[in-house]
């Protein structure tokens, strides 16, 4: 009795299920007849697409209006910058003729280094001082100014006289320790691993730069990386200008009056 009813119910339910399934299936199958290549819907295309009209390069790299720039004084009122003598020609980067000329001029303009006046200087500064002292009473010449004397002494030191190993190491160390923290090498450039630059540095006795750092040579520059090569040299020049005045042992001035720096970031990459 109950069994028969249960069977009936079960049969009915199964039938329902079958119907439901077949309907569902039909529904699921139906869309397949549509073309399956349906583009998806993109939003407000016209709006999105607008990349604004490209900025047009303007000849006005400098303001033209409202007032003509007060006849921009040729040179900005030179700010007091003893250590950075505003270069006569804005010294450009690297192998730049203008820069070279500027430096050449600067060098030419600098008081020509006097060749040591004959006879007076001796082999070493100490001896020299003694000699001068002793010769003084006899000398017809007027007394020297101290500065001249110092200069004479410096010049007296033969340039090729070797620094002692300790002196050389001390000097190199002192220069390196002051320049390196000021140098922001352009690490990450594609050609950084191959690039170096040599600059000639001329300093005054007080450690300030006597002339803009002079470009000497560069390795790793190619036709394809000129912009990078230029930027590279500029980072080196900037390092020197930023760090000046350098604090270096006064007694070794003849050795650091002029020297070369080889900027080589290979170990940093």
């Amino acid at each position: 009795m109950t069994e028969g009813r249960a069977l009936g119910i079960a049969a009915g339910l199964h039938l329902l299920l079958l119907v439901a399934l077949s309907l569902g299936l039909a529904g699921a199958i139906a869309p397949e007849s549509e073309p399956d290549v349906t583009p998806i819907e993109f939003l407000d295309v016209s709006d999105v697409a607008t990349v604004t009209t490209p900025p047009k390069p303007s000849m006005e790299a400098a303001p033209q209006d409202p007032e003509p720039p007060a006849a921009a004084p040729e040179m900005p009122e030179a700010p007091p910058a003893p250590q950075v003598p505003s270069p006569p020609t804005p010294a450009k980067a690297a192998p730049d003729v203008a820069a070279q000329d500027a430096i050449a001029e600067a060098v030419a303009a600098a008081p020509a280094r006097q060749p040591p006046s004959k006879a007076k200087p001796a082999a070493t500064a100490g001896q020299n001082a003694a000699l001068v002292d002793r010769s003084k009473p006899k000398a017809a010449a007027k007394p020297r100014e101290t500065e001249d004397f110092e200069k004479t002494v410096e010049d007296a030191i033969p340039k090729q006289a070797k620094l002692s190993a300790i002196q050389a190491a001390t000097l190199e160390q002192a220069i390196r320790a002051q320049i390196a923290p000021c140098w922001n090498p352009p690490i990450g450039g594609a050609d950084v691993a191959e690039m170096t630059a040599v600059l000639r540095i001329r300093l005054n006795r007080d450690g300030t730069v006597a002339a803009p750092p002079e470009f000497v040579s560069q390795s790793g520059a190619t036709a394809g990386n000129q912009a990078y090569a230029r930027a590279f040299v500029e980072t080196a020049r900037r390092a020197v200008l930023r760090c000046a005045p350098l604090q270096l042992p006064a007694d070794l001035f003849p050795y650091w009056r002029e020297f070369e720096l080889n900027f080589d970031p290979r170990l940093m990459t």
Binding site: P115, P116, K118, A119, P121, A122, A123, A156, P158, K159, Q160, A161, L163, A168, L171, E172, I175, R176, I179, A180, P181, C182, W183, N184, P185, I187, V198, R200, A236, A239, Y255, W256, E258, F259, E260, L261, N262, F263, D264, P265, R266, L267, M268
Partner: peptide
């Protein structure tokens, strides 16, 4: 001394001090 010194001076300028800067600031 002077003669010796002049002789030394006459030698062409010696090699300049050249220093390798192999590290820098990453700042």
């Amino acid at each position: 001394f002077a003669a010796l010194f002049l002789a030394l001076i006459a030698v062409p300028a010696a090699a300049q001090l050249r220093i390798d800067i192999t590290s820098g600031s990453q700042a």
